[in-house]
Simulated assay, not measured.
Amino acid sequence: MASVTEKLSESYKAAKRAVSSAPSNDAYLAWDAPGVETVKLDEEVKAQAIAETMNRMQKHNFDKHRHAFRATHVKTQGIVKGKLSVLLDLPSHLRQGIFAEPGKTYDVAARYANEPVFLQPDQAAGPRGSSMKVFGVRGELLEDGNKSSPTQDFFFNNAPMIELTDIDTCLEIMQLREKHFDDPMTLKVKTALRTDAVKQTAPFLLPSTNLVSIDFYTQSAFRFGDFYGHIALFPADDAMTEKASEKVKSGQSSEALSEWLKEYLEKRGVKYHIKLQLGTDPAHHPTEDASVVWDEATAPYQTLGLLEFPPQNSFSPERRAFWEDHMLLDPWGGLAAHRPLGSINRLRKIVYRQSQQQRDRLNATKSWDVGSIDQIP
Rank of each mutant, 00 (worst) to 15 (best):
L84T: 01
R56F: 05
D107H: 10
S291L: 09
A337Y: 05
T298E: 04
A197W: 05
D289M: 11
L141V: 01
R194M: 11
E163D: 10
V293N: 11
T195M: 02
H285G: 04
E10R: 08
I373K: 02
Q175D: 05
I373D: 01
V117D: 12
V74Y: 00
E115I: 13
H326R: 15
G97V: 02
L41Q: 10
A125T: 09
L176E: 02
M161S: 13
D122C: 04
P23K: 04
I79A: 10
L307V: 14
L335T: 04
V189R: 08
Q120Y: 13
E288K: 06
P203D: 00
L193P: 01
R320P: 01
A125S: 14
T72Y: 12
H60N: 01
T186Y: 00
Q77P: 03
W294G: 03
A71E: 06
G35S: 04
E242Q: 14
D374M: 03
R268W: 01
T201A: 11
Q77T: 06
F99S: 05
L87Y: 07
K46A: 09
L205T: 15
P340I: 12
K199R: 15
F224V: 07
S245N: 13
P34H: 09
K75Q: 08
L257P: 08
Q152L: 08
K249W: 12
S131E: 13
N25F: 05
P34A: 09
T201E: 05
L307M: 14
S314C: 12
G82I: 03
F309I: 13
S253K: 08
A364G: 14
E101K: 14
L164A: 06
A364D: 15
G78K: 01
R339I: 02
E318V: 15
D325W: 10
K13W: 11
E10P: 06
P377I: 00
Y352M: 11
L341A: 03
F118K: 12
E246D: 15
P184I: 04
L206D: 04
L362G: 00
S131T: 12
F222E: 10
V248S: 09
S3N: 08
S372Q: 03
P127V: 08
R17L: 14
Y106S: 10
P102Q: 00
A51V: 00
A2D: 13
E143K: 15
F224S: 02
D330P: 06
K179C: 01
A364Y: 04
T365G: 00
V293W: 09
P23C: 00
E263A: 11
F62D: 00
Q312N: 13
L176N: 04
E288I: 02
A47Q: 00
T241P: 08
S245E: 14
Q302D: 14
